[in-house]
């Protein structure tokens, strides 16, 4: 059985002298009927779907089914390629990849829920961009996905990864936390450091509500994927410099759960609050669904 907390994860990895991805892979073989190789290849398959989703929107203008969003990944990628950007080509391109996944999702393309469809852009954008920057192999990216799933399992066990239950902090927050932990480990950080990164990310996104315009996974979801990506990447640098989260991962996860439960129903994916009920939000809803 997979460990129940971050504390246990640190202990078991120290005892076995292993990384999060190694422990997660080992644990999955015990829980499923699959071999280590089969699990690794299944995850590689997910990585391939992620790469396609993250690249598609960079080269084509993708339009969502409802017509509400589209073409932003293309714009951002062109900007990264052609203009002098403020945060650098690396960061702008990472955001473009996140937007691309969200646009592919909203256009009924193929994505990997990670952990959900609404937050499907963050993990691919972060690991692909970090992998490219650090010259990592495809196998290294699969390992990063394993690290991310291990951290995600602990969040799901102790809190929630569903926007309907915990707001956007539970979806994009969890995705960014998983992604940040994964690249810290990819950069050679320790298990503790990976969890510091996950903790810092969730702290910085704590309280974020889920208020989709017209109830669709488009506005503001796509841009929250881009901002979650930036948060995951910058946090990894913070942690690799030696900075720690004073509030440990397990405490942060339980705080996220408590905050999620105390959000009113109108701010948990019902489209009854927040941006969804602003005059413009309601107008856009009418545009998609009529009266």
């Amino acid at each position: 059985m997979f460990v129940n907390s971050g504390k246990e994860l640190i202990e078991i990895c120290q005892k076995n002298k292993c990384t999060i991805w190694e422990y997660t892979l080992e644990s999955e073989t015990k829980e499923s009927n699959l071999s280590i190789e089969e699990i690794f290849e299944k995850m590689r398959n997910s990585l391939k779907v992620m790469i396609n989703a993250a690249e598609d929107g960079l080269n084509h203008k993708i339009q969502s089914v409802s017509g509400l969003i589209g073409g932003d990944a293309f714009k951002l990628n062109a900007y990264a390629e052609e203009k002098e950007t403020l945060t650098g080509k690396f960061m702008v391109k990472a955001m473009a990849r996140a937007l691309s996944c969200s646009e592919v999702n909203a256009a009924m393309g193929k994505i990997v829920a990670s952990p959900t469809a609404g937050s499907c852009g963050i993990l691919p954008a972060v690991i692909i961009s970090a992998g490219e920057r650090l010259n990592k192999s495809e196998d290294d990216l699969v390992k990063a996905l394993l690290t991310a799933s291990g951290v995600g399992i602990i969040i799901a066990k102790n809190a929630t990864i569903s926007g309907a239950e915990g707001g956007c902090q539970a979806e994009c927050g969890s995705a960014a936390a998983m992604a940040s932990a994964a690249i810290v480990e990819m950069m050679g950080g320790t298990v503790e450091q990976a969890l510091h990164a996950a903790a810092i990310v969730i702290k910085n996104i704590l309280g974020l509500v889920c208020d989709p315009v017209a109830g669709l996974v488009e506005i503001p979801c796509a841009k929250r994927n881009a901002s979650g990506t930036v948060l995951a990447l910058t946090t990894a640098d913070m942690v690799m410099s030696g900075i720690i989260s004073y509030i440990p991962f397990d405490d942060v996860v339980s705080a996220m759960y408590e905050v999620g439960k105390s959000l009113p129903c109108s701010l948990r994916e019902t489209a009854l609050g927040g941006l969804a009920v602003t005059p413009t939000g309601l107008l856009l809803k009418k545009q998609v669904f009529g009266e």
């Binding site: 995850m43 393309g109 193929k110 829920a113």
Partner: peptide
């Protein structure tokens, strides 16, 4: 405590936009 597979967390592979309204 509920148990999860790694493919519950990173997965499923699906056609968007919504796991409940499209994949389901």
């Amino acid at each position: 405590m509920k148990q999860y597979s790694i493919f519950d967390i990173v997965g499923p592979i699906m056609i968007g936009p919504s796991s409940s309204h499209t994949a389901g």
